[in-house]
Computed example of a mutant assay.
Amino acid sequence: MRVLVVEDDNELGPALTSGLRAAGFAVDHATSRAEADLKVWVNTYDCVIADRGLPDGDVLELLRTWRENGYTVPVLVLTARGAVEDRVAGFAHGADDYLGKPFALAELVARVRALGRREQHPRLPQLTVADLTLDVPTHRVRRSGVLLTLTAKEFAVLEALMLRAGEAMSRTELLERCWDEMSEPASNVVDVVIRHLRRKLGPPDLIESLRGVGYRLNGPA
């Protein structure tokens, strides 16, 4: 999942970004409504986490504009305002979830994963290609029933390929889906992860290299 964190606090913003990356998400960070607005129309996100009080205004006004213009990606609003009327206002402006400060990172991660499974990017609890199964909620992968140990990035790339099984995915698509703005597009990070995945998945090889295009996940011939 690729997530946008909109938080202007000099400590909380970087801490959230770091914590979510450690949980396996690709994360971009914005510190104002204007910056967030630019990023959501340039990049593709699975979820937006936004602090309500930003230097250039209430994020709810920006959220209402997004919804009016057809931006349907789930948005979780963070705020120190915990009154019922504040939560009601958040939902009325188009928020999908509302989390009061202070909060536990583990709860935020769980809520973001739940939002990512909603209608914008529907996901099956379990993906299956040939004898390979990927369980989305538990982050477990099995080949012929044998549990495999994958890194968060390997899991993300494999999930992307399995969601598009039988279709070609370019390196650029995989970068946009599984990495964030801190990644170097010209680097060989996708090829490195694919190489590690092939080694861990074992034979027969399910990942096909498409010269000049990218990769495709197939069932064995």
Score class of each variant (00 low, 15 high):
residue 2 R to C: 07
residue 3 V to D: 02
residue 14 P to A: 06
residue 20 L to K: 00
residue 21 R to M: 13
residue 23 A to N: 04
residue 30 A to I: 07
residue 33 R to L: 14
residue 35 E to D: 13
residue 40 V to I: 15
residue 45 Y to V: 03
residue 53 G to M: 14
residue 55 P to Y: 04
residue 63 L to W: 00
residue 65 T to E: 12
residue 66 W to S: 02
residue 72 T to L: 15
residue 73 V to H: 03
residue 75 V to H: 02
residue 78 L to H: 05
residue 78 L to I: 11
residue 79 T to Y: 03
residue 91 F to G: 04
residue 93 H to L: 13
residue 93 H to C: 15
residue 93 H to E: 14
residue 96 D to L: 12
residue 97 D to V: 05
residue 100 G to W: 02
residue 102 P to Q: 05
residue 105 L to Q: 06
residue 107 E to H: 07
residue 108 L to S: 03
residue 111 R to Q: 11
residue 115 L to M: 08
residue 118 R to A: 05
residue 120 Q to I: 14
residue 122 P to S: 06
residue 126 Q to H: 07
residue 127 L to N: 00
residue 129 V to N: 02
residue 136 V to L: 12
residue 139 H to L: 15
residue 139 H to R: 13
residue 140 R to D: 07
residue 143 R to A: 05
residue 144 S to N: 13
residue 148 L to I: 08
residue 153 K to G: 01
residue 153 K to R: 12
residue 155 F to C: 13
residue 159 E to L: 11
residue 160 A to Q: 06
residue 161 L to D: 00
residue 163 L to H: 03
residue 163 L to M: 13
residue 166 G to S: 08
residue 166 G to Y: 06
residue 176 E to Y: 07
residue 181 E to D: 14
residue 181 E to P: 06
residue 185 P to F: 08
residue 186 A to E: 15
residue 189 V to R: 08
residue 190 V to W: 00
residue 192 V to H: 02
residue 192 V to E: 03
residue 204 P to A: 09
residue 208 E to L: 11
residue 214 G to A: 11
residue 214 G to C: 09
residue 216 R to K: 11
residue 217 L to T: 04
residue 219 G to Q: 14
